[in-house]
């Protein structure tokens, strides 16, 4: 079977949806963050597939930017998680509920 653009896009959409569902139902901050990374990488797959299909290099260029941004985001995000854990001894999102109303 030959693999077409639609196959890549379907895989990418599946990965993205898994990420979205994970963000919505998981309660561990690190796992939620991993699901967000999954979403970003699903988009990367789309970019590369489109880039190959369109014979246009811009999509692959974008992937590099996305990877860099994701790394920066991970650095800041994990720092926030660490400072949260130091203060509350938990990263369960259900127990992070001081602010409401």
């Amino acid at each position: 079977m030959e693999i077409h653009l639609t196959h890549y896009l379907a895989l990418s959409a599946f990965m993205f949806t898994s990420g979205v569902v994970g963000v919505l139902i998981r309660k561990n901050a690190i796992v939620v963050f991993m699901c967000i990374e999954l979403m970003l990488n699903a988009v990367n797959l789309s970019f590369v597939a489109f880039s190959h299909y369109l014979q246009n290099i811009e999509g692959q260029m974008m992937v590099f930017f996305v990877m860099t941004v994701a790394a920066a985001e991970a650095a800041v995000g994990l720092a926030i998680v660490i400072s949260l854990f130091r203060n509350k001894q938990t990263i369960n999102l259900n127990q992070i509920n001081l602010l409401k109303g």
Partner: peptide, 8 residues
Amino acid sequence: DRSNEAAI
């Protein structure tokens, strides 16, 4: 902890 919570 409130600032942590806002940030996360």
